[in-house]
């Protein structure tokens, strides 16, 4: 029988192995970003090399990094806010006034996430082309909103359900209309949950590549589209691609790092309350 200490050491080792597996590509990419193109593809790989910033210069010369960051922020935050505006009343109604079909409705909403996006690519593209929304921020915000709505409704629904229904009934007796119940009671009471829902939604939008690559080119292109533009027809430039990728993920990495406590708190909300 393993002692408690042995188990603890075993778990720690396992944790590190998993973490290294997950992080290895990221570290590799980060290293490659500072290598010359020749060092980046040399075999055996070089761990010790002369770091250079030429890849970053090349990236900044070729693309408008600032614009892409701006687009990523506007599109992910914008879509998340619109999502919340639509999802909060929906989740409120489903959590506190469930009908016979509420559970089915929730399942159906989630099931739309199972559909491969590529299945609707052609109609989406045609709609976007004929409405003039190709390569516009509005267009991408609409797509991201629709894409995240099911998850955001689901998460808000489960957080709202943690709020005792008597509290809302007391508020109804006190004369609170649904909007006031939502704004004055539900949102403040499930703030950690709402925050982590918003953070998750922002991160999902930020990392989204399929729609951004297919529906934007330059004007509205977020960072994911910028990375893709580096896997260019002239052949792969690993070092530049790595530099571009590092630049693309850096903001969200910092964002995730800063908000990780909030995220964890929200995602375990209820379990520990």
């Amino acid at each position: 029988m393993a002692s408690k200490a042995q188990k603890k050491i075993g778990l720690a080792v396992l944790g590190w192995v998993v973490a290294l597996l997950v992080f290895f590509p990221l570290i590799w990419m980060a290293l490659a970003a500072f290598k010359t193109e020749i060092d980046a593809v040399s075999s055996p790989p070089k761990v010790i090399f002369d770091p250079t910033l030429e890849n970053f210069n090349a990236v900044f010369e070729r693309v408008n990094y600032g614009n892409a960051v701006f687009n990523s922020i506007v599109e992910s935050v914008g879509a998340t806010l619109i999502c919340l505006i639509f999802a909060a009343p929906a989740a409120y109604a489903m959590a506190f006034f469930p009908g016979r079909k509420t559970k089915d409705l929730l399942m159906w909403m989630l099931s739309t996430k199972m559909m491969p996006a590529v299945g609707v690519l052609v109609p989406m593209y045609l709609i976007f082309r004929s409405t003039g929304m190709l390569d516009t921020r509005t267009g991408l915000v609409i797509v991201y909103t629709l894409m995240n709505l099911p998850i955001v409704v689901w998460m808000l629904y489960s957080f709202f359900r943690e709020v005792p229904k008597e509290i809302l009934e007391a508020a109804r007796m006190d004369g609170a209309r649904p909007r006031q119940q939502l704004l004055l009671l539900l949102l403040p009471l499930s703030l950690p949950g709402v925050m982590s829902t918003a953070l998750l939604s922002i991160i999902i939008c930020w990392n989204e590549a399929f729609w951004s690559i297919n529906l934007t080119a330059s004007n509205a292109a977020p960072l994911t589209q910028l990375i893709a533009s580096f896997s260019s027809p002239e052949g792969l430039f690993w070092a530049k691609l790595s530099a571009a990728s590092l630049l693309a993920i850096a903001p969200i990495l910092v964002f995730g790092w800063v908000t990780q406590r909030q995220l964890v708190r929200g995602l375990t909300f209820g379990a520990v309350k």
Partner: peptide
């Protein structure tokens, strides 16, 4: 209410 239902 039995559960008091105060606004926490």
């Amino acid at each position: 209410f039995q559960s008091y239902a105060l606004y926490p």
